[in-house]
Amino acid sequence: MSVLGEVSGIARIEDAPLESLLDALRAYRQRQARFITASCLDRGDRFEILYLFDEDLRTVAVRTLLPKGAKLPSATGVYLCAFLVENELQDLFGIEVEGLHIDYSGKFLVTDTFDAPPLLKQTACELQLPKENPS
């Protein structure tokens, strides 16, 4: 499975294995980089997660690869503002985040009527075609 190569608009992508992810994030915190967000890609048997930071209008990123089924350590201890995006990862990708500061346990954005996390590639979201419209 491939990972993202060069991304135009991101100055640098630093790879951090899962175990040392929080250390890598802490280093950014020390350099006073502003946390932007995290972004997740479904890569088949694992997730590719990018943590994006702003350094003087340049975007830099930390990447970690998370095998499906594994737990993701929460970044909220380092950057409190990550709680929104981590709740979103729980909702939309079904990733379990460990040590989340404010945990909505998967009911942050979506209701519990979904049987599968909607942003996973294998989840086909049924299309609402116009012919269903009674009028």
């Binding site: 060069e6 991304v7 975007t59």
Partner: peptide, 30 residues
């Protein structure tokens, strides 16, 4: 390929990241 664009919306910085895989559908739009 992938790209990230940052612009200033009225409420602040707006970021789009698109990942294309060579088909007409995107792999991911963040």
């Amino acid at each position: 390929g992938a790209a990230l664009a940052r612009v200033e919306a009225p409420r602040g910085e707006l970021i789009y990241m698109v990942v294309g895989n060579g088909t007409k559908n995107l792999e991911r739009m963040r």
